[in-house]
Design a protein around this nucleic acid. Structure first.
Length: 571
DNA sequence: GCCGTTTTCGGCCCGACTGTTTTCAGTCG
């Protein structure tokens, strides 16, 4: 079983238990265990024993035993018993915004309803409003929630959401009473997908800010409107939460509102141990407020260095901060060049010169033109003759262009058997060879791993592009033994790409961390097909930062001379 | 169910908003 599948079982168990009104801390234990397993960089099934599983954070004897049973038999007796209860069917109610475990059970107990269709019908007939503790408004809210759940996009990509969030931020930041404003939540942590937009404002006049917020042109519906917190639904169907606090609470609110939830729980527990109460208004000793204007203050009062938002997932960052061992994360400004850029020669929009000048304008010192090879027919991939022609154009351009270098490269297709789409002696003439899979995603795990390892071992190949092939919320990564791939990279001086294309972000954050742990260096590349795609570099950087990547792990943070040395293989 | 430089039992982050209530429960983040 995959980690994802095991995690889903525990998530479902947590939901069923919550409907059964089990101890909420027990419910949380299952949720936390599911998250731990989902975030692992290696298959849980690769652990040799139940005792090893039990060492994972948030997993004790009981859940380790259940994990082991799942891995060994593919089934779990405890889970199957829960599945046979009617409450298992009610978990789909939890997908409906505004409907939680208590009402789900209440509705089932009184009306015997266990499907969304039946729920909608009952609500339309007005049968819910007479249930104890419910009323007309709750019934209407549930009905609305069902409609919303149907057209609701679960999560949107970071790149899709980021500009929209910025647009709202800009409208609010122009308001007079707004003293400070910032994005928070998973957008600030730069997760690859986000469910909603969180915005935080410091102001001593919350009311006019709230009024402006709920009457923005984007607003389709106001979900909540309070003195410090409001939520809206936009016309294109995503939720935006706004929180307004006083200036002296801005840091505490930023920290609280940025999350993650697990990180916050750990931080507040740390505060408790030190006799402090931490909430979104500040840090308190008894009734006395001792800090909270800045995030630095909060971390400082706990004896921690500032933890960058991208790390706040309770993935070891708190321990690292305690030990003074937080990574010095790579920054946008560290990047010297882009090692994966397309041009009009294949499926790009701009000429090589345009791509080069645009990159230089952004402060880069070099790019590698890596157009597709001929196997990619729809992109008019380059054959040997056209590639050599392109190389001559690059030579000419380099004579012309000042204080910038255009490297000769290729994004060569890796064929199904691991051979490359161009002969080695052609590739040997290039400065950079990027290899990539664009077809035959249906191979088995063993075949796909062998295919990639063979390409990585090719002495001409420098970088493996978008290594797992995932397209966010469209295509799962192909089955792959990434450990074996990384071992091959390490042995052969081949590097892995962090592709900044918003739908890819591949390697993902967890795999970046895995590469760091295994000692494999990365190229953070844009895969630009037009000049404005260079903007996406920030998303690749964010993904790497979330994976604890430092400048020293990034080959395109090197200057050109050092890069050339680094790329040297036993060709 | 998990966890422990105070603890192997008794804690477990903390607060806002809404709706249905006369003081709180449910949901959400």
């Amino acid at each position: 079983m995959t980690n994802r599948e095991i995690a889903r079982v525990f998530e479902h168990i947590a939901e069923i238990l919550s409907i059964q009104a089990e101890n909420p801390f027990k419910v949380r234990a299952y949720t936390r265990a599911a998250q731990t397993i989902a975030d692992l960089s290696y298959p849980l099934s690769s652990l040799p024993s139940q005792a090893e599983i039990e060492k994972l954070p948030g997993i004790g004897k009981a859940i380790a035993q259940k994990s082991w049973e799942l891995i060994q038999t593919g089934k779990l007796g405890y889970y199957e018993k829960l599945l046979s209860t009617p409450h298992a069917r009610l978990t789909e109610f939890l997908r409906i915004p505004g409907l939680g475990p208590k009402h789900a059970k209440l509705i089932y107990d009184h009306l015997g309803i266990d499907s969304v269709d039946a729920l909608r019908a009952a609500a339309e007939r007005g049968e819910l409003e007479s249930l104890p503790g419910m009323g007309k408004k709750t019934q209407a809210k549930i009905l609305q929630g069902i409609e919303q759940a149907l057209k609701y996009k679960q999560r949107s990509s970071l790149a899709e959401m980021h500009p929209r969030a910025q647009a709202i931020l800009e409208q609010l930041s122009g308001l007079d009473p707004v003293e400070q404003i910032s994005l928070a939540g998973s957008l600030r942590r730069m997760r690859d997908t986000v469910a909603d937009v969180d915005i935080l404002v410091a102001s001593d006049q919350a009311d006019p800010v709230m009024d402006a917020f709920v009457s923005l042109p984007e607003v389709a519906d106001v979900l909540a409107r309070g003195p410090t917190k409001s939520s809206i639904l936009t016309r294109d169907g995503f939720q935006v939460d706004l929180r307004v606090v006083a200036r002296e609470s801005f840091g505490a609110a930023m920290h609280y509102f940025t999350g993650s939830k697990n990180h916050n729980i750990r931080i507040r527990a740390l505060g408790q141990e030190a006799g402090l109460k931490i909430n979104e208004y500040g840090v308190f000793r008894g009734k006395r407020r001792i800090g909270g204007q800045t995030e630095e203050e909060i971390f400082g009062l706990l004896g921690l260095a500032f933890i960058p938002p991208e790390l706040r997932e309770d993935h070891g960052e708190i321990e690292a901060a305690q030990a003074g061992e937080l990574p010095a994360l790579v920054e946008l400004a560290d990047i010297r060049g882009d090692l994966h850029v397309h041009s009009r020669w294949t499926d790009g929009r701009n000429s090589i010169e345009e791509m080069a000048l645009a990159a230089r304008k952004r402060g880069l010192r070099y790019i590698a033109i890596c157009d597709h090879s001929s196997a990619l027919k729809m992109a008019r991939g380059l054959d040997r003759a056209r590639l050599q022609e392109q190389m001559r154009e690059i030579d000419e351009l380099n004579r012309k262009i000042k204080s910038f270098a255009v490297l000769k490269g290729i994004e060569v297709d890796i064929l199904a058997d691991g051979r490359l789409d161009l002969e080695d002696e052609v590739l040997a003439e290039l400065d950079v060879v990027v290899a990539a899979v664009h077809s035959r995603f249906d191979l088995s795990r063993a075949e796909m791993t062998a295919r990639l390892v063979k390409a990585i071992e090719n002495p001409q190949v420098n970088i493996l592009a978008h290594p797992t092939g995932r397209i966010i919320s469209k295509r799962e990564p192909y089955p792959l033994d990434l450990d074996a791939v990384m071992d091959a990279c390490l042995a052969c001086n081949t590097f892995l790409e962090v592709n900044s294309f918003p739908e890819r972000l591949d390697l993902c954050d967890i795999h970046c961390r895995q590469a760091r742990d295994r000692g494999v260096d990365l190229a953070i590349s844009t895969d630009s097909h037009r000049i404005d795609h260079y903007d996406w570099l920030k998303f690749g950087i964010a993904t790497a930062r979330r994976g604890w990547i430092e400048k020293r792990h990034v080959i395109n943070a090197l200057d050109l001379k050092a890069l050339r040395r680094k790329l040297r293989k036993a060709r």
